[in-house]
Each structure stands twice: as structure tokens, then as C-alpha cells.
Design a protein around this nucleic acid. Structure first.
Lengths: 173, 173
DNA sequence: CTAAATCTCTTAGTGACTAAGATATATATC
DNA sequence: GATATATATCTTAGTCACTAAGAGATTTAG
């Protein structure tokens, strides 16, 4: 019994700690956007472009969950800031590929240096085996949160009379 | 050397996994706000109220980094939704305390159930000792990110000519 | 008692977003 | 090959949460 209680307390602490560090991570991202002088969504798109390389406007809309109209605005701003370029696909001229301008984008990359250094320092204190445990946890955690998100979204498709009587708005993705 | 390389690769994977799960966590929060039919900041304030209990409008502005004007809007919306109540401080009648209406707020709490279940399931696969490691990591990680955020913000106070030539906007916190 | 400080709210203006539809191009059908 | 349908992006009009600045209202200091 005492064993179980200790574990319960540990789990609560863990949840709290995870929440806090996650919230702080969000704040870091917002600060990066602020310092770079771009909107939050703009930074998110830069991130996607960095991960996926050359990507169409429609794909950005898909991944971010924004409308194509909003993406037009995002790309306009990023282009004006010299961070990305629009390139029409020569095979399918309806498509517009967005690609980063590496020299400019690198300046944004610089803003992640403090974070990387902090993380290096933290990771430095762990053995390789411990790091593997952390990796396993991060991977499983991601899957768990993804599943939870889907579960939550599916509430929206449940007819309202079968749900709690919260006032609900349409979800936009 | 091969040892070092393996570790480097592990670290990269870890960073990537952390980033992904963190991004998914943000998405979960946005989904909660969407399902509840309130704005993101409104949910953040509910969160603070839940953690800190009865809190003044000014304190909400402080913690969220929003202006007091924005908080007036947040509280207006939350009050209209029946989630919080405004109460004037009888000792200092300039102050307005905000407190949650438990019955209504509980409905929002329900929206975190899928997440909690997912997390329980993930945590279930770990021994108590492993959980302690995760807690240590989460705690240290939080501190690291916090420090990194401060370091990044301090760039803003550095005179522009000593910084990279990024176009910068004023930060708002 | 008056001046300054503190706390919230109001006002005017801005920027990112959505929904709906316009435009341009590509694909399928007869 | 012409016409209809589908696809990809952009445009337009309107909305909503936000900021900056300052207007009450009340408290604290001199």
C-alpha cells in the first residue's frame, strides 16, 4: 500500500514537471518568434520547411491546420522577410513550392542555440543507457499524446446530445 | 570514437523525439481549447486559476504576459461562459479577484481525461526507479529551458549593432 | 488634504485568421 | 478535341484577440 502511494505521488509530480517544462518549451518558441520578428505560425512553417525541405503551399496548410488563405499570408510575410522563396512547379503550374533561403534561415537557426546548449548540458549528465530510456519515453509519450488528441477530436464528431453540455464551437482542422 | 558517434546520434534522435512530442502537446492544448469553445489564452488562464486558486486580474496579466486590457477580455469571455466569477476585493476595492466556478470548470477538466489516460498507460510500463529518472530529467529540463529562454530574451536588450542583422520587433513581455 | 501610485477597464487601431468564392491549371469523359 | 470536373493557390470581406495609451477608481505617502 505504501508502495502504491509512493508511486502515485511520484506520478503526480512527474505529470506536473512534464507540464511545466512543456509550457516553458512553448514559451521558448514564442520568444524565438518574437525575437525574429515573425508570427508564431510563420515560425512553425519555417520549422516544417526545415524538416521537409521544399514543400507546396497546400502541404503547409495541411500540416499546420491553417486554411490555404492563411498560408498565403504566412508565405507573403516570410517571403518579404527574405526567409523563403516561392517557386512555381514547372510540371504542374498550379502548384507553388516554398523553399527556405538558407543564408537568412540560418539566422533563425541561431536563435535555437541557447536551447541546444541548455539541452546538451542537461543530457551531459546522463549515461547512454539512461538516454536510451529517455528516448523510449519520448517516443512512447509522443504516440500517447497523438492518440489522446485523436480521441479528443473524435468527441467533436459525437452528436452533441451524447456529450456533456459544454458549449462547443466547430473545430477548425 | 564509435562510442562518441553513437551517443551523438542518440542525442539527435532524442532531441527530435522531444520536439515532436512537445509539438503534439501544444496541439492537444489547442484541441482542448477548440472543443471547449474558448480561446487559447482563455484556457491558459483557466490553468493558472486551477493551479493558483483565487487570483487577481493583474496577476493573470503578469503570468501570461498579456496586457491588462487583454486580460479584461479574457475574463469577460470566461465569465460569460460561466467558467469564472469576478469578485471585488473588499479590503482593496481596486482589485478584482477571479475565481473558477468549480462545476463548470470541471467540464473542462474532463477534456484532459484522454491525455491522463494515455499518460497513465505510458507510465505504467516503467519501474519506480525509471520514473524517478524521468522526473529528474523533466525537472532539470525545465530549468534548462527556462534559462535558455532568459538567455534568448537578453539578446533583445543587447544593442542591435552587437547582434546579427535580423530584423527585430519589440518583444512584448 | 493633496499628490503620486496602483489596479482595472475602455477605446481605437492592428494583424492573423476563417469562409467563401475567384482564378488558373490539370485531368477525365464523351 | 471540347467540355466538365477536379485541384491548387490567391483574393476578399469580415471577425476576433491583441496592443498602446490613457481614463476612472481607489489606496498610500508626504
Amino acid at each position: 500500500m505504501s508502495r502504491t502511494k509512493a508511486r502515485t505521488a511520484l506520478l503526480r509530480e512527474l505529470e506536473e514537471a512534464m507540464r511545466r517544462s512543456s509550457a516553458q518549451g512553448v514559451l521558448y518558441g514564442q520568444t524565438v518568434a518574437n525575437v525574429a520578428g515573425i508570427a508564431n505560425s510563420d515560425l512553425e512553417c519555417m520549422d516544417i520547411l526545415y524538416l521537409e525541405g521544399r514543400v507546396t503551399a497546400g502541404r503547409l496548410a495541411e500540416v499546420t491546420g491553417l486554411t490555404t488563405g492563411a498560408i498565403t499570408g504566412v508565405v507573403d510575410r516570410l517571403e518579404k522577410a527574405g526567409l523563403v522563396r516561392r517557386e512555381r512547379d514547372e510540371n504542374d503550374r498550379r502548384k507553388v513550392f516554398i523553399s527556405v533561403v538558407p543564408e537568412q534561415a540560418m539566422k533563425i537557426g541561431q536563435l535555437y542555440v541557447p536551447m541546444q546548449q541548455a539541452m546538451e548540458k542537461v543530457f551531459g549528465a546522463y549515461s547512454e543507457e539512461e538516454l536510451r530510456l529517455l528516448l523510449r519515453f519520448a517516443t512512447e509519450g509522443y504516440k500517447g499524446v497523438l492518440a489522446a488528441t485523436e480521441a479528443l477530436k473524435s468527441l467533436l464528431d459525437t452528436p452533441p446530445e451524447k456529450r456533456s453540455d459544454l458549449k462547443l464551437k466547430k473545430l477548425r482542422r
